[in-house]
Design a protein around this nucleic acid. Sequence first.
DNA 1: CGCGGAAACTTGAACGAGTCAAGTTTGGGT
DNA 2: ACCCAAACTTGACTCGTTCAAGTTTCCGCG
Lengths: 146, 146
Amino acid sequence: MPPAEEIESIIRAARLRVTRPRVAVLSAVHEHPHADTGTIIDAARTELGDLSHQAVYDVLQALTDAGLVRRIQPSRSLARYEARVADNHHHIVCRDCGAVADVDCAVGDTPCLTPSEAHGYTVDEAEVIYWGRCPACAAPSTTQHR
Amino acid sequence: MPPAEEIESIIRAARLRVTRPRVAVLSAVHEHPHADTGTIIDAARTELGDLSHQAVYDVLQALTDAGLVRRIQPSRSLARYEARVADNHHHIVCRDCGAVADVDCAVGDTPCLTPSEAHGYTVDEAEVIYWGRCPACAAPSTTQHR
DNA sequence: CGCGGAAACTTGAACGAGTCAAGTTTGGGT
DNA sequence: ACCCAAACTTGACTCGTTCAAGTTTCCGCG
């Protein structure tokens, strides 16, 4: 969780204008890894007071384009954002509650980045999602899952 | 593209009731790999005449639960379905036009199915999506991509 | 230090894939 | 042939996301 000044310089370093909404949104993404848009809107409003949802969508788009955040969207889930970028890690998603956790790659730095037959496609990224159940949902009796 | 009788027996073998909507939808998924829901609805209607969109959603859900089709949903894309199941293959998605192609796994049968640290999760599937550009969109001058 | 313009934000309406709910039809077991 | 739970129809509705028009603000430049 970098302090506000560091957030500012991160934004500035990406050649983006520094605005209060952008600082608030980027902070929110740092503080809430894998949060969906609604959660980010709430967190940014807590920090700023008023803020339109449209601004948050715009900011997230700008930050994504600049490579400061990454957007992930597992099936049956809303869009989620994370600030861990450019370090090649992957995700485990719980089939029941949708919780997301980070996983470092199993095989070296760029796992499976070589499809056997690419059909002429130019590949630049391999995204891996592990599906399963989180500890809470896997527990048999404690909670009635879903 | 199996004939109608074979589609029927596939459905019956999964202990599902055989109905005309189900046969039409499963045929459509076989005939249009990676099609989104709208395309499947159109294809099924072409075969059947009238058919409610709700029925298609129900059928796709039932077929997915039974393991007869697989649902995939790359970021920024609608839900797509395919009939190739239980053979561990993955997908290449074009960043520009959204086209999807199949890829057999690079490393053996169950690629990367072992995350380095699973955070207590029980993992049962590893889904890999390669991101890049399809031959048409990668071509520099021919088509103005997007 | 203040101006100017483009980028960023606000407001409010609209879109559309997917879901919900209530009523009717139908497959297939007894 | 009967029956009923499963499957389908109809139609309204939800809500994450996008679109559009107008206003504000950041920041390079003089």
